[in-house]
Design a binder for these strands. Sequence first.
DNA 1: CTGTTAGCGCATTCAC
DNA 2: GTGAATGCGCTAACAG
Lengths: 342, 342
Amino acid sequence: MVRGARKPRLADVAARAGVSRTTASYILNGRSDEMRISAEAVARVRAAVVDLGYRPNRTARSLRTAQTRTVGLISDNVASGHFASRMLTGASAAAREADHFLLIGETDGDPLVERLLAEQMLDQGVDGIVYATLRHREVVVPPSLLQARVVLLNCVDPASGLPAVVPDEHGGGRAAADLAARAAGPVVVVGDEREQGTHAGTMRLAGLEERLDELGRAVDDVVRCDWTVPAARSALACWWSGGGPAGSLVCMNDRVAMGAYQALDGLDASIPADVAVVSFDGSELASWLTPTLTTVGLPFADLGEAAVRTLLDPDARGSGTQRLAMPVVHGGSVPTVARVTP
Amino acid sequence: MVRGARKPRLADVAARAGVSRTTASYILNGRSDEMRISAEAVARVRAAVVDLGYRPNRTARSLRTAQTRTVGLISDNVASGHFASRMLTGASAAAREADHFLLIGETDGDPLVERLLAEQMLDQGVDGIVYATLRHREVVVPPSLLQARVVLLNCVDPASGLPAVVPDEHGGGRAAADLAARAAGPVVVVGDEREQGTHAGTMRLAGLEERLDELGRAVDDVVRCDWTVPAARSALACWWSGGGPAGSLVCMNDRVAMGAYQALDGLDASIPADVAVVSFDGSELASWLTPTLTTVGLPFADLGEAAVRTLLDPDARGSGTQRLAMPVVHGGSVPTVARVTP
DNA sequence: CTGTTAGCGCATTCAC
DNA sequence: GTGAATGCGCTAACAG
């Protein structure tokens, strides 16, 4: 690149290559074959691009094409979520793969900010918007959003019929059932399934019950408490002192499991010999506990990736709701199943 | 807004208000006074804007002004960091305050991706770039970045002299010393201060030693281990069995502290009666432990906010390195200081 | 196969 | 105080 020169324009490239701007434009947009441009012209243009250090001006291109190659992501609190923020990782990776950029904005749950953000993103001319939530739940997307292509991430809006990408909580519940069933004795759920209006709790519980039933087992009790460490700790300690012991604990998330560990620590029950513990989330916390926690993971990065892919996929209009599998993260909190080794 | 009509342009607004595009433009850009435009014209234009539902086309404006009102944030792994992702929250909030958007991209530490991302952001015409890292450390920013305004976030590049925003680890170390000194007995540091080439460890240790010295105390031992739960657990358990007990433990981060709790759990030492525990990070984990952990917090959201503010502040060219205070998050793991109540 | 031409929507200089 | 004219850099009809 010639130093000190101003930023080269397409016209400069064309001039240096001895072709017209049109020709140069076609070549740079990969339409040289279609337009049957001479190989020689192509070579000259490419050389000129390198010599001049030419980089297309995306703003100008956007003005012309009405496409910005950016996608917006509006969320309540995703970036603040200690674990859910991986949705951003996945989303930004998928965007980059498709030669797009990710614009993010957080509303902190404020509908006013939400509306503002949506309008501004629309003004900015994003090619689409991902509407994400920290917790898996039902939402009503602000009407102003609907001017753009929208994909829901970790939430659903039944009324709108918008495409959504969510974890398969029901399937996760079934997976948890298989894990919990490895231990004998009563299966006890820890955590209120109706926590903060999320879908997660009820769907996990439904899957759990369905699969347990198939296995000839059942949820024997539910210890209702908030999905936090201290709440789970005290609720479970209280429950334990007032009733029979459990064979396995199914915790609504990893923090609840941590609380359960702490409660069990004060009793004479050891994990997994006396009681098995399974939970949901797949956060790093699981690997910090002793024994490590077996947990049905939330595939946040994959969710974010799938959402952006769907958004950018031209023929994914009414693709409905994609439910991504929740992978089991194996730890030491459930008995290992004996395997037949030849 | 008239339904079914195409998106109104400035010309439409001007026509409806009976003025020229120029006049309308001045009014919308707040230059009506400067240009001494009649109040009546202003009112007519504003009314037309509302009637038509006019929204300026930012792409066109950008082409004209060579400003996109977007800032880029390139990081290694910030969005994946369970706690550091709050830098994004702060950064996006600060951007929005300044009527900008935040473009994010993650390199996962790959220099190639980094270069690509930088080039693309430059092409995109961002008004500036925040270069962030998950861990506080030294970096060498890719030269291609230097074409734009750059502010470093949670890292420094001594060679470049680029403005940076980082936590005040040294001050944090001093704060930890005051906390640790509340307990009698040896002060023991847990965690290798040279962990993964971060600045954090050495600076925290330096501040700790400096302040302890002022208090007539000292770091009596250092238990070197990775900054993870299992490493800290086993290292400390081993250290304890091989030497004298400690009066207070200063843990290099909250996970190390969790490991320390686990190690202490297996011994006869209770927190904080027998041993005080202080750590760094201020993550949520601190509130999950029993007793809750006293920790010197990393102000991630503030860091992100300050970085974008600095980037967008026209007269913050060579503002050097801003060190933001690490706020103490008080928990129950150190003895409370007796207070004189009247 | 290549060049001419005309906008995309806006900000701004310069006459009136 | 206002309006006509120009160009930001690019794409894409349309004509040669």
